[in-house]
Structure formats: C-alpha cells, structure tokens
C-alpha cells in the first residue's frame, strides 16, 4: 500500500471517514441482502421451512443484529443523498462537511424513532 504524504486534500476528517463508513455499511448491507433473498426464497419450498428459518430472526441476538442492519441502511441512505448533493450542487463540495453533520443528525432522529419500536417488538411481550 503506497503511503500518501501528510497534508493531502481530504485525508482524515469528515470527508474520508464518511467515505470509509459508506463503504463498510455498503458491503455489510450487500452480504445481508444475499442471505435475505435466499431465506425469503424458502417460501417456495414450504411454509414450515420458511417459518423455521424466519423464526431465528425473532431471537434477541438477531433483533440486535436487525437494529445494526437498519442503522447501516439509514446511514448509507442519508449519506448517499449527501453524495448526490455534493456531486450535483454547484456549492455541494463546499458544504460537504456541514452536510455530514446534517446526515448524523437525521440518523439520530430516525434511529430514535425506530429503536424503541423495534426493541419493544423484540424484547417485549408479543
């Protein structure tokens, strides 16, 4: 791996870390998607086969995994809008840093709406 000299244009800080997070969440979501299409395909086998596998998604550990998955999707979605705005707005690159903090704010609000409901479903009476 060639090492970049210090003081390059966007090494470190918000620009690079949002890029890293976008990659990591993207790859995670892709591998979940492969598994999710395969497990859903079990509806074509039998109701029992599908229900048995989907039943494992309702355990507390998988419930926490789903919370993590939704967090990854929500970040990837909002940061994706930021990337589109950076690319298409004339002043996009100038405001990329501010827009990342808007993304973080929207992420917190969305997760605050989702987590109580989801964790209530996973850990509460049903």
């Amino acid at each position: 791996m060639p090492s970049a000299p210090t003081g390059t244009l966007y090494r470190g800080r918000e620009g690079m870390w949002s890029w890293v997070a976008h990659r990591v969440t993207g790859v995670l979501i892709f591998f979940f998607l492969l598994v999710h299409i395969l497990d859903t395909a079990l509806v074509r086998v039998s109701p029992e086969a599908y229900n048995a596998v989907i039943g494992t998604y309702k355990t507390p550990i998988m419930g926490l995994g789903e919370a993590g998955l939704v967090a990854a999707i929500v970040f990837h979605a909002f940061n994706g809008i930021r990337i589109i705005l950076v690319d298409f707005l004339a002043k996009g690159p100038r405001y990329q840093r501010v827009m990342l903090w808007v993304v973080v704010g929207l992420f917190v609000v969305t997760m605050a709406g989702f987590l109580p409901r989801h964790l209530g479903n996973v850990f509460g009476d049903h």
């Binding site: 509806v43 109701p47 309702k58 939704v70 989702f114 409901r117 989801h118 479903n121 996973v122």
Partner: peptide, 17 residues
C-alpha cells in the same frame, strides 16, 4: 415489515402470502 403492528414477530409464511 418492522414498524407496523408486531414488527418482526408478525413475519411468517402467511404474512408473505
């Protein structure tokens, strides 16, 4: 699939059907 009703607990073969 996750927010409405019982969320993930409502998902089964009949739900997909």
């Amino acid at each position: 699939n996750l927010m409405v009703g019982k969320g993930v607990h409502a998902i089964d073969f009949a739900f997909v059907g």
